[in-house]
Simulated assay, not measured.
Amino acid sequence: MKTASLPSHFQAFYQKYPDKEFDFLINTIVLLNIFLIQPHTMRYVIAFLLPWLSLMFQGKIGAGILCLILQITIIGWIPATIWAVTSLNRMYADRRTEAVIAAMRNQNR
């Protein structure tokens, strides 16, 4: 395993114990590090794997239940995933718009 892609404290650990098989643990830690640094990534993974859960995390309980019914069928999985991802994109766009409006209001004061 290449240690260049690891954070420095993991590189030191990996170099200290090179004979141990920590590849699974280190890969898991690196993935968790990515998800903690970029929480949007984790939301998109959830939207892809469990679209109904993504909608419920956004506070859309009715849509989440309907999406779960869609997801039960294999054919409905694709529309459910598209629905969850577009809903997630809309949520992030609304947050950006609210931040711009708040900045404009603070600038005018």
Rank of each mutant, 00 (worst) to 15 (best):
M1G: 12
K2Q: 12
A4L: 08
A4T: 08
S5W: 11
S5H: 15
P7H: 05
S8V: 08
A12H: 10
A12K: 09
A12V: 14
A12N: 10
Y14P: 07
Y14D: 10
Y14N: 09
Q15R: 14
K16C: 13
Y17A: 04
Y17G: 10
D19S: 15
K20E: 14
E21G: 09
E21C: 03
F22T: 15
D23Y: 11
L25E: 11
L25C: 02
L25N: 03
N27Y: 03
T28S: 10
V30D: 03
V30K: 08
L31F: 07
L32W: 00
N33E: 10
F35I: 02
F35H: 04
L36V: 08
L36A: 06
I37D: 14
I37M: 13
I37P: 09
Q38Y: 13
P39I: 01
H40N: 14
H40I: 13
H40G: 14
T41V: 13
T41R: 05
R43S: 03
Y44L: 03
V45S: 05
V45L: 06
A47Q: 00
A47L: 03
F48H: 09
F48N: 09
L49R: 09
L49A: 10
L50E: 13
L50Y: 12
P51E: 01
W52E: 10
W52F: 12
W52A: 14
W52G: 01
L53K: 08
S54Q: 05
S54H: 01
S54R: 09
L55N: 00
M56L: 02
M56C: 08
Q58L: 14
K60L: 05
I61W: 11
I61G: 03
G62N: 11
G62T: 13
A63T: 12
A63N: 15
G64W: 06
I65Y: 07
I65P: 06
I65N: 06
I65C: 09
I65G: 08
L66W: 12
L66H: 12
L68V: 02
L70M: 14
I72V: 12
I72T: 06
T73V: 05
I74R: 05
I74F: 06
I75E: 04
I75H: 01
G76Q: 00
W77C: 04
W77L: 11
W77T: 08
P79R: 02
P79Y: 00
A80L: 00
T81I: 07
I82P: 02
I82E: 00
I82S: 02
A84C: 01
A84M: 02
A84W: 00
V85S: 04
T86W: 09
S87H: 04
L88E: 02
L88M: 06
N89K: 08
R90A: 12
M91V: 11
M91Y: 11
A93P: 01
A93M: 11
D94C: 09
D94A: 07
R95F: 10
R95W: 14
R96T: 01
T97D: 13
E98T: 07
E98I: 07
V100L: 14
I101K: 12
A102V: 04
M104N: 15
M104Y: 10
R105N: 09
R105F: 07
R105A: 10
Q107K: 13
N108E: 15
R109M: 13
